[in-house]
């Protein structure tokens, strides 16, 4: 098992190398001049040329790429072209916000998605099945940005029960330890802040979690339907076990494997989806950070952040593969 994990970690190197080439190329293919966006429209050609030279923009691409990778290997993600801030520091500050949001959205999606899928399967063709699966169809089809805006309009503007943006009300004090606000408020025993942070998480979490929730619900349903027809489920019933036990233990553990695969993949989409959600809800995470960097042609930030997101995605997939073994003892990793 340990050997397998090590091998998978080594395999990360070519994957991330590929990602770095891809992002580097994409960023440099996008039209727009970073020098111009820094100095503004009124800059003279000499000023621009000087800045380009200073930033290394006139070097051949291969040299620029070499510099980029060389720095990253030293743990240096470079500095923002605009603010001159160290990108690594900025990401370290913003990443917890994104991860908190992503995990919250994922938990929401898993709890509701799996429960709805299981009930829909057990009560196949019932009104619950029809309603929840039609709902799931809507869920995968709704654009996140539209859903997010509608939620803000309904819950924040009209009903005024949820905050429209941000992570914490400006009136709430919270000592930041890990930068995960829910965790920090628990650690410092600050329940007022916990409640406020939770309410701030609800809308973006729901908006972000809608698509995975729908996908998980549909996958759980079809997987459960298949498992419920298996011989061992009949055996469990013939042993006189309670129905809930048969459904939630005997069936669900077997049905969970394909759902787990989906969850692992959806996690990646969530990180991507965070760009939209964070922008709409002014969530100070790396999604919004990248979005603003793209607008400002701050390609250093874009490159580095995408690389970080890709690394997280690959690690989540590795974790998924390791979890497989827990759910299915027949899986062997040599």
């Amino acid at each position: 098992m340990l050997k397998y994990i090590i091998r998978r970690l080594v395999m990360l190197i070519p994957v991330l190398l590929g990602v770095s080439i891809l992002t580097f190329s994409l960023v440099h293919l996008i039209p727009g001049d970073p020098a111009k966006s820094m100095l503004g429209e009124k800059a003279t050609e000499t000023q621009l040329e000087l800045l380009r030279e200073e930033m290394g923009l006139n070097d051949p691409y291969i040299v620029q790429y070499g510099n980029f990778i060389g720095k990253i290997l030293q743990g240096d993600l470079g500095e923002s072209i605009q603010s001159k801030e160290d990108i690594a520091v900025e990401i370290a500050q913003k990443l917890p916000a994104t991860i908190e949001l992503t995990i919250f959205a994922m938990i929401l999606a898993m709890v509701i998605g799996i429960l709805a899928g299981v009930i829909a399967a057990v009560k196949q063709y019932s009104w619950f099945d029809n309603v929840s699966m039609t709902g799931a169809l809507f869920g995968v089809s709704l654009p996140i940005f539209w859903l997010g805006l509608m939620m803000i309009w309904v819950f924040a503007v009209e009903l005024k029960i949820l905050p429209p943006s941000g992570r914490l009300a400006s009136t709430v004090e919270l000592e930041t330890i890990t930068n995960f606000y829910l965790l920090d408020s628990i650690l410092s025993g600050n329940w007022g802040a916990f409640k406020d942070a939770f309410f701030h998480l609800l809308m973006p979490g729901l908006a972000l979690g809608t698509i995975p929730m729908a996908v998980i619900a549909r996958m759980t349903r079809s997987s459960m339907l298949e498992v419920m027809g298996q011989d061992y489920i009949r055996t469990a019933a013939a042993k006189g076990l309670k129905k809930q036990l048969i459904i939630f233990q005997h069936a669900l553990k077997n049905a969970f494997l394909p759902v787990l695969t989906i969850i692992g993949l959806q996690f990646g989409f969530l990180l991507g989806g965070a760009v939209l959600t964070e922008t709409i809800f002014s969530w100070p995470g790396i999604g919004r950070y990248v979005y603003q960097a793209v607008l400002a042609r701050d390609y250093q930030i874009v490159q580095s952040t995408i690389l970080i997101i890709a690394t997280i995605f690959v690690l989540v997939n590795l974790l998924t593969d390791i979890l497989y073994k827990y759910f299915d003892p027949r899986i062997k990793y040599e």
Partner: peptide, 8 residues
């Protein structure tokens, strides 16, 4: 082969 639950 199929009557016992494979994951327990």
């Amino acid at each position: 082969m199929t009557s016992l639950n494979p994951v327990f």
